[in-house]
Design a protein around this nucleic acid. Structure first.
Lengths: 94, 94
DNA sequence: TTAATTGTTTCTTTAAAGAGAAACAAGGAG
DNA sequence: CTCCTTGTTTCTCTTTAAAGAAACAATTAA
């Protein structure tokens, strides 16, 4: 789809963090940004090997939401896992 | 916030469209991707000067959703408007 | 200045997302 | 093997978001 491809290209083309940050606040709703940052936090903790139930009670969210995240990391290949490895250190798979 | 800044940095750091596309599908829900592409379409049409009511009936969405979009383009400075100008041609302001 | 068009905001109703609880599955430790 | 921890899925119920309609404001053209 054209719009989707355009968006991907636009995000790819922005190489300045300040610009990206403004674009984030313009193009995403406050709720989406909140969801997205929480999701990233979950992915980080899953990546570190923390049990899903611990994460669920820590953030008061339901387990089913976390299972979704864990599937991302099990994708083969998972770009997200590669990024987590790169930014926060490689972790052993489980 | 650290997670948010990290995310901005990560999106900024990806310079390959294929990688970005995979990351999109991993990190966003299907609904968010659908919402995002529709939002981009609306912004494009607003940018072209199409009346909000025309857009609303075309996509069967409510006007309040569009007004939000129009505010983005009225921001000063608006990164989104700059991007639309760059990608789809500069339009006169209204 | 008046009428028509367009933009913005608010309200109510409908639809969808998420929490909470619980059941079931899978793996590991004793 | 049995128990315990953890992961996954399903269900119901509550909360939240979006549509639809309508009112009001702003702008433009005659």
């Amino acid at each position: 789809m054209k719009n989707y491809d355009d968006l991907v290209a636009i995000f790819t083309g922005i190489d300045n963090p300040e610009e990206m940050e403004i674009f984030f606040r313009e193009i995403f709703t406050p709720k989406e940004l909140k969801d997205l940052t929480l999701r990233w936090q979950l992915l980080k903790e899953l990546h570190e090997g923390r049990p899903q139930r611990k994460i669920a009670e820590k953030y008061h969210i339901s387990l089913c939401k976390i299972t979704r995240g864990s599937k991302i990391l099990k994708n083969e290949p998972s770009i997200t896992r590669a990024i987590l490895d790169k930014y926060y250190g490689k972790k052993s798979r489980r």
